[in-house]
């Protein structure tokens, strides 16, 4: 495991802890603002990592969500890898170096992620509803906000590890090697 992968794993742990505890620190009327920070990490990996490494780390990020989800194991890991594959496949269409671009991408990705999650739950559990929930929008908004510092943090981390003269972009890390 490289130092970068180890650092990404630590960021995943921190993101998992933060997204689980932050809603408890908000006043009750703001607790619908649940940011999916692990999704933001997966998005960053999809835009900057090569396939195998990014998929592996995305799988780890999804597994952390699985840990406390009380669903059949693997659902959130599957969703994280699926999100990685979709965004990685279409990475050339996106330009999200951070800031508002990252926020906008995370907002849309969160809504799509929620839709996939609902479809999978509907397939697995007959009682699950296919209706759109207002909480999705709040969650997507919070994920958009949370993605900005996550992208900035991961970008800074990558820049500190890249050889001098290299710039970040899709597959940049692979080229650097």
């Amino acid at each position: 495991m490289t130092i970068r992968n180890l650092l990404i794993v630590l960021v995943c742990f921190a993101a998992s802890i933060l997204e689980a505890t932050l809603p408890m620190l908000f006043p009750p009327f703001l607790r619908s603002l649940r940011a999916d920070l692990l999704l933001a990490v997966v998005l960053y990996l999809a835009l900057h990592d090569e396939w195998v490494q990014g998929a592996g780390l995305s799988f780890f990020a999804g597994s952390l969500s699985d840990l406390s989800a009380a669903t059949p194991p693997g659902i959130y890991a599957f969703l994280a890898v699926l999100t990685f594959v979709i965004v990685r496949t279409t990475a050339s269409a996106f330009r999200a170096d951070g800031g508002l671009q990252a926020g906008a991408l995370a907002f849309v990705a969160s809504l799509v992620h929620a839709l996939f999650a609902t479809l999978i739950f509907k397939l697995l559990f007959s009682g699950s509803s296919l209706a759109l929930h207002a909480s999705w929008l709040w969650s997507a908004f919070a994920t958009g906000l949370g993605a900005m510092p996550i992208f900035a943090l991961l970008r800074r981390l990558d820049e500190s590890l890249l050889p001098a003269g290299e710039t970040l972009g899709p597959g940049a890390r692979a080229r650097a090697r």
Binding site: S16, A20, S68, A69, T71, S110, A114, T118, T143
Partner: peptide, 15 residues
């Protein structure tokens, strides 16, 4: 005491 919610916004758990 409740100390956390499920990590994913789509999970329905408390810790």
């Amino acid at each position: 005491p409740v100390i956390a919610v499920g990590a994913s916004p789509h999970s329905h758990t408390l810790r």
